[in-house]
């Protein structure tokens, strides 16, 4: 098994078929915390022409790259430099309406606080976009206060509307498409995944804050 260092993180390299490389964080070595989101976004920004697709999870990167180009790609990845301004990136603001959603009763019972208190807690924080995944455009947001964690539904809904804001365990999530889903829906945001070009979408590692709109404000602005 080969190893590679990307932005100071050691990965074990596994070949999958003739067109994929699976890079797994090597846990025996000291890691920079939460580094995968930053690494995957940095790779996407570089637009390597050998790289057909990239998927990331909590501890892995899956790179779609034809066998004949894999050596070259790995070399380029190992020479990649960290982007200079990470903390300078502006926060992104997303409008949310908490009056158009279904799971409040469950969320209130689980957390043990009233709706307004929970909303205040959610609005207080900013959340780091750590990944897209699961369904087209679905955003995983990290940074939800521990007392606001709510387990996923036992029976997933067959259809959750695009733009829904939801709590799934320790994460906040925004649905990018109409899809089945088992997270607790607490709000509705504008459907940014469909509205924006890919280049204008929030970048992995960017901080996101929510701005509350009343139902009337929301419907006026985002009809």
């Amino acid at each position: 098994m080969e190893q590679i260092k990307i932005l100071g993180n050691a990965f074990d390299v596994l070949t999958i078929g003739e067109d994929k490389l699976l890079l797994q964080l090597n846990k025996s070595l000291k890691q920079i915390e939460d580094s995968i989101p930053l690494i995957s976004q940095t790779i996407v920004n570089e637009e390597f022409k050998q790289l057909e697709n990239i998927v990331s999870s909590e501890t892995e990167l899956l790179l779609y790259c034809q066998q004949s180009k894999q050596v070259q790609l790995l070399k380029q990845l190992s020479q990649m430099e960290a982007p200079i301004s990470r903390s300078d990136e502006n926060e992104i603001f997303i409008d949310v309406c908490f009056e158009l959603s279904e799971d409040w009763e469950r969320v209130i019972n689980n957390i043990g606080q009233d709706k307004e208190t929970i909303i205040d807690e959610i609005l207080k924080q900013s959340y780091r976009l750590i990944n897209y995944g699961f369904q087209p455009g679905f955003m995983y947001l990290d940074g939800l206060d521990e007392k606001l964690h709510v387990p996923r539904l036992d029976n997933p809904r067959l259809e959750v509307p695009a733009g829904s804001l939801a709590i799934g365990g320790k994460y906040l999530g925004v649905y990018g498409s109409n899809s089945p889903g088992g997270w607790n829906i607490i709000g509705r945001t504008q459907h940014i995944y469909k509205r924006l070009n890919q280049k204008d979408l929030p970048k992995i590692s960017q901080e996101i804050r929510f701005i509350r709109l009343t139902k009337e404000q929301y419907l006026r602005k985002h009809k």
């Binding site: 995957s40 057909e52 897209y132 087209p136 455009g137 890919q198 979408l201």
Partner: peptide, 10 residues
């Protein structure tokens, strides 16, 4: 295949 799996597309 799709080119945008990074954004969660299959």
């Amino acid at each position: 295949p799709n080119k945008d799996m990074f954004y969660g597309n299959p």
